[in-house]
Design a protein around this nucleic acid. Structure first.
Lengths: 257, 257
DNA sequence: ACAAAAGTGTTGTGAATACACCCATGC
DNA sequence: GCATGGGTGTATTCACAACACTTTTGT
């Protein structure tokens, strides 16, 4: 930081990569684009792009999210910085440092292939083939982070539309964690946390065509879960790409964008 | 990521900033350097520096840590990526994107002003004046992160020398959280977690000059704490710079290095 | 009538708290 | 003896898991 000849070093490109999740059709889905040129032509990759000279990485991420999803208003969506990936060889073309973000969407539209993406699609998280660059790693880290955050924050409501039933909220947990939860206990836990959800008086909706109509809820003010809603010890939704080891260095330094 | 003229954009500098904590003299201390030139001349700042063309941010952080602390072997130390700060105006000289890391040191030596730092010192975390750039924010984020990680990981042993007493381990928690803990309960909790610590048979040490000699322990294999060791609800060690709000964007996009 | 989904109640187990108490050492 | 810090025991409270049961709808 002392001498500061702007061109003293080989330039670094700074990009953002987005791991965008949604819960749809009973499964966890991820927004991916198909690469139209080398390297990794034909492979699926996370959406993303350059951070422009006058914007922060967070602003860039929100801009890219709007472009890729075609949503007009992404201001209310949950967007969270995940990690920065900076291995020197992660992109064969040049030195690219990428700040990864995770976003959660309720009920998203089919993406138009806006921006420069060849084609963008929602794909099931399970059974994805290898992605371009180090995006497998980023996506696994993102999934692990989201799963962990469900435990001690009210994040799950970000996956839900403005009005939702407790059954739908429970499905978010079950889908992300890959575990079945006990309905009565889940219900009590959620309702016992002040500000997690608030009931919409009088409203009800049929969910599966059959069964008793369920009461509708809105997301509340609360942000943290005290006490946490821990996932069952015996069922890791899906083990992370590499088991975290906080005593050594858990910082991902992946290798691509 | 499509066209890739390396010089198409104003170049970004990529740096690392280090929030290095230690517990000493009954208090939480931070490694800081005094700036020798503008901007922020005379202010204290976090140590850090440029990421070199052939190294990852993590490698750069470890290199800087060794330079600033004068420690010959930093390979075993806990180093963890915190967040990336990328506001366009965070450094008035040029566009600097900084990846922040947190490190925990047991029993550190006085820093020699190695590297290019004017002078490096350990300062008490409490009562720090304003730091250079956005380092106040980074440091507050780091403190909050460390406090949270103590709850559900075995991280606390990283603050301790190879052999330590349970009283010393408890002091780590109390110092970082700023709360008093019940000794018998703390003890049971730690010993009930397999792999958190392992006793060194026969060894004992006097701690305060007086009192019963305490048994000595080593850090164990375990990495996570199940169940977590939650800090008392009523005592946030020190509130973060801005209260986290997971439903909006909690990603720090500070403004300096 | 039956299936399906929402919602309520109950009970046992384990964890966390808040103490009281004993042990070993220096002064 | 007394202060100081290490270590043990125990009772109360609370959260949680498991599971039985009732309610309301569609077919």
């Amino acid at each position: 930081m002392e001498g500061y000849d702007k061109y003293a070093f080989e330039p670094f490109a700074v990009t953002v990569d987005l791991a965008v999740f949604t819960v749809r059709a009973g499964g966890l889905q991820v927004l991916l684009i198909e690469r139209g040129q080398e390297p990794y032509i034909g492979h699926w990759a996370l959406p993303g792009g350059f951070v422009l000279p006058q914007e922060s990485a967070g602003t860039a991420a929100r801009r890219e999210l709007a472009e890729e999803t075609g949503l007009s208003d992404v201001s209310g969506l949950h967007l969270e910085q995940l990690c920065t990936y900076s291995e020197p060889d992660r992109d064969p073309r040049m030195r690219v440092v990428s700040v990864a973000y995770t976003a959660l969407l309720p009920d998203p539209p089919e993406p138009r292939g806006g921006g420069d993406a060849a084609s963008a699609r929602w794909l099931a998280y399970d059974g994805l083939g290898p992605l371009a660059f180090d995006h497998d790693r980023i996506l696994a880290d993102a999934h692990e982070r989201v799963g962990a955050k469900l435990e001690y924050t009210c994040l799950a409501t970000a996956f839900c539309p403005p009005e939702f039933t407790l059954g739908e909220l429970q499905q978010v947990y079950e889908t992300v964690w890959g575990t079945a939860l006990d309905r009565p206990n889940f219900r009590r836990k959620v309702l016992a946390t002040p500000g997690f959800v608030e009931q919409i008086p009088g409203a009800a909706r049929l969910t599966g065509g059959r069964g008793k109509p369920a009461a509708l809820y809105r997301a509340g003010d609360a942000t943290a879960l005290h006490p946490p809603l821990l996932r069952p010890a015996s069922a890791p939704a899906r083990p992370p790409s590499q088991s975290p080891s906080p005593s050594s260095n858990p910082s991902p330094e992946g290798r691509s964008s």
